[in-house]
């Protein structure tokens, strides 16, 4: 089944790292949430969209040697848990580097890349990946 509708709904968040901040407890969530899991009812009407800077650091990572068909061109590639400057953690691919260059604590910056495409005729999905800061 086509993922076009779901992807379109989430595109703003995926393109620009737009999360939501609970203005009740000042916590930023990514992916965005409608309600703060801590403040619950208190957060209703107090969730505000916020774009992250794109700066973060590697919290943990793994090197993928046997990936999905779609990523065969890129093996071996690095998938990492990135801790964003603004607080949220997110999972993303680290690109434009060899696995040896990636360490825990390495500073990274978000970059917009092709994430996948639905075959040759389908929609191209774009989203965030990260590159290592020089």
């Amino acid at each position: 089944m086509s993922e076009v509708p779901r992807f379109w709904r989430e595109s703003r968040h995926r393109y620009r790292l737009v999360g939501t901040r609970c203005t009740n407890c000042d916590t930023l969530y990514f992916p965005p949430r409608v309600i703060c899991p801590t403040c619950r009812r208190e957060s209703v009407g107090k969730m505000k969209e916020e774009e992250m800077s794109g700066a973060g650091e590697i919290y943990s990572f793994t090197v993928v040697h046997d990936g999905l068909e779609q990523f065969k061109m890129q093996i071996p590639y690095v998938m990492a848990l990135v801790k964003m400057k603004e607080g949220p953690f997110l999972t993303a691919q680290i690109v434009d580097c060899s696995p040896e260059e990636v360490k825990i604590g390495t500073k990274v910056t978000a970059t917009l890349r092709k994430v996948r495409s639905e075959g040759k005729a389908g929609i191209i999905q774009y989203g965030y990946k990260f590159t290592i800061c020089p």
Binding site: V95, K114, V115, K129
Partner: peptide, 9 residues
């Protein structure tokens, strides 16, 4: 261009 780069990115 990298395998995940195109004119949009």
């Amino acid at each position: 261009p990298g395998p995940d780069e195109d004119v949009l990115t």
